[in-house]
Amino acid sequence: MKKKKTQIKIDKSMFEFDLFWSIKDGSLVDIDTLISVYSQYSNTKNMKALVALFSKEKVLSVIESQDILSDEHKIAHKINIGIINGTATENFTSENLAPFTV
């Protein structure tokens, strides 16, 4: 049985902001933690990177498990990931995506 990968070397250049400033680029980070942190500060570039790295299903699974996010945020993430994953996304900006309520 193949062992499931739980960590990845972080490539900070893939994301809009460095939310892992306390660790060195290329360090191993927990995949669920990476998804969790970047989905809390979501924007188009970050969501594209997460989906490209881990798949739409994995990203949504981690988002759904987060108690810190409101139901409105979870719904907005589902809509946005559907748009990002299902369309040529070069033309998408944060203005094209579902708004988040705070």
Rank of each mutant, 00 (worst) to 15 (best):
M1G: 14
K2Y: 15
K4F: 12
K4V: 14
K4H: 12
K5I: 15
K5E: 15
K5L: 11
T6S: 10
T6E: 13
T6H: 09
Q7E: 15
Q7C: 06
K9H: 12
I10S: 01
D11Y: 03
K12I: 03
K12P: 00
K12H: 04
S13C: 00
S13Y: 02
M14R: 14
M14F: 13
F17E: 15
D18P: 00
D18H: 04
L19R: 07
F20K: 00
F20V: 08
W21R: 11
W21F: 14
S22Y: 14
I23C: 04
I23V: 15
K24T: 15
K24E: 15
K24H: 09
G26N: 06
G26R: 04
S27L: 06
L28T: 03
L28Q: 11
V29R: 07
V29Y: 02
D30T: 09
I31E: 08
D32P: 00
D32G: 02
D32K: 09
S36F: 08
S36V: 05
Y38Q: 05
S39N: 07
Q40H: 10
Q40G: 13
Y41D: 15
S42M: 07
S42K: 00
S42W: 11
N43Q: 08
T44Y: 05
T44N: 10
T44I: 11
T44L: 04
T44F: 05
K45N: 05
M47R: 04
M47E: 13
K48L: 05
A49K: 02
A49I: 04
V51H: 01
V51E: 00
A52Y: 08
L53A: 06
L53F: 05
L53D: 06
F54I: 06
F54L: 05
S55W: 05
S55F: 12
K56F: 05
K58D: 03
L60H: 02
V62T: 13
I63S: 07
I63C: 10
E64R: 11
S65T: 07
S65I: 03
Q66A: 08
Q66K: 06
D67T: 12
I68A: 04
I68M: 09
L69W: 08
L69D: 09
S70I: 04
S70Y: 07
D71W: 05
E72G: 03
H73P: 00
I75H: 08
I75P: 00
A76E: 01
A76Q: 01
H77Q: 04
H77T: 06
H77L: 07
K78N: 05
I79G: 00
I79R: 10
N80S: 12
N80C: 10
I81C: 01
G82A: 01
G82S: 10
G82E: 11
I83Q: 07
I83L: 09
I84D: 02
I84F: 01
I84H: 00
I84W: 02
I84E: 01
N85D: 14
G86A: 04
T87N: 09
A88R: 03
E90K: 08
E90Y: 15
F92A: 02
F92I: 13
T93R: 07
S94A: 11
S94C: 11
S94P: 03
E95H: 10
N96H: 14
N96V: 05
N96W: 13
N96G: 06
A98F: 12
A98D: 09
P99I: 15
P99F: 14
F100T: 09
F100Q: 09
F100D: 11
T101W: 11
T101H: 12
V102K: 13
V102R: 14
V102H: 13
